[in-house]
């Protein structure tokens, strides 16, 4: 903020700009690297020649994916889960949050329910009890399981309640005087006024569903039910972490196909890159709502 013209200031400015550039590039590099690997020649990719740009341009990896039925199946499972899950979650949250945003004089059980919700945010039984419960519900290999098994996203619910509470009282009272029932008030007044927060939650929820791999892993009986991230975890990451000794590495060089793996990973990144500009616009609002309250 200090506007200096001294030599020290100029040096600082140059170094600062360079540092910022390096940090920015470090965040872009993984994407670029994956992309380069995916369109490089198989031999060049496997031998580690690809670093800054593609070597020996080839679309063989993408052609190979075209014939990979399992990859497509996983992609579709992830897509369906993301779309349905986001719709269901946001609809339930938008309705659930409304009574909880009313003062307890208007809806008496509100305080008890709020404590219950907050308790669910602070405490959980851990992975094993959760897993056993899901198995008892029969949620193995089911889309409903993939959508519901994470439970109510309590933190998002609280964000929404806080937002609803901040809406001008007069607005709701005016609707009430005009004879609107609670559902009409919710769908015609409250929800249209909450578009910014709902958009934020849609983006966060969909990113969450798309990126989720663990539930997909433990709640699937075999690989044909894996969501895409689970598929990548099992088919790409697990092989990478078993490359332990030198002779294994040499064997893997012949067997593995880094270019193909990179193409799979890159395709899994694409939906994120598509929504990123929108994410960008909204998520700052979202974080600030969660962090700063008057």
């Amino acid at each position: 903020m200090i506007q200096g013209k001294t030599l020290g200031n100029r040096i600082f400015r140059i170094f600062n700009t360079i540092l910022m550039l390096i940090l920015t590039l470090s965040c872009l590099y993984p994407l670029w690297y994956t992309f380069c690997l995916s369109i490089s020649d198989k031999a060049a990719a496997n031998s580690g020649m690809v670093t800054l740009y593609p070597i020996g341009f080839s679309l063989a990896s993408y052609q190979e994916i075209m014939g990979d039925l399992q990859f497509f199946r996983s992609f579709l499972i992830s897509a369906e889960r993301t779309v349905l899950g986001t719709l269901v979650t946001i609809l339930i949250l938008a309705i659930f949050a409304y009574p909880l945003s009313r003062p307890s004089s208007e809806y008496r059980p509100k305080n008890v329910l709020m404590w219950l919700v907050v308790f669910c945010m602070l405490f959980n039984g851990g992975t094993i009890p959760w897993y056993i419960t899901m198995v008892n519900y029969g949620l193995i290999d089911s889309m409903a399981g993939l959508i519901l098994c994470g439970g109510v996203p309590v933190f998002n619910l609280i964000l929404l309640i806080n937002f609803y509470r901040g809406l001008p009282r007069e607005l709701l009272e005016a609707a009430q005087i005009d004879g609107a029932g609670v559902w009409t008030i919710l769908f015609r007044v409250v929800i249209p006024c909450s578009v910014p927060i709902l958009a934020t939650l849609v983006l966060f929820t969909s990113v969450g569903y798309w990126n989720e791999y663990f539930q997909g892993l433990v709640l699937s009986s075999n690989e044909s039910h894996y969501p895409l991230q689970t598929y990548i975890k099992q088919m790409v990451v697990n092989i990478q972490t078993t490359n332990l000794s030198m002779d294994q590495i040499e064997k893997m060089d012949k067997l593995s196909n880094k270019s193909l793996n990179a193409a799979k990973v890159f395709i899994a990144m694409i939906p994120m890159l598509v929504v990123y500009p929108f994410l960008q616009k909204y998520f700052i609002t979202g974080i600030m709502l969660g962090a700063v309250k008057e």
């Binding site: 872009l28 993984p30 989720e212 990548i232 975890k233 990478q240 990144m269 990123y276």
Partner: peptide, 16 residues
């Protein structure tokens, strides 16, 4: 740009 890695899953980033 610097927000980008936050939105990529650890599965993806681990593979890279």
């Amino acid at each position: 740009i610097v927000y980008l890695p936050h939105f990529l899953s650890w599965v993806i980033l681990a593979s890279v």
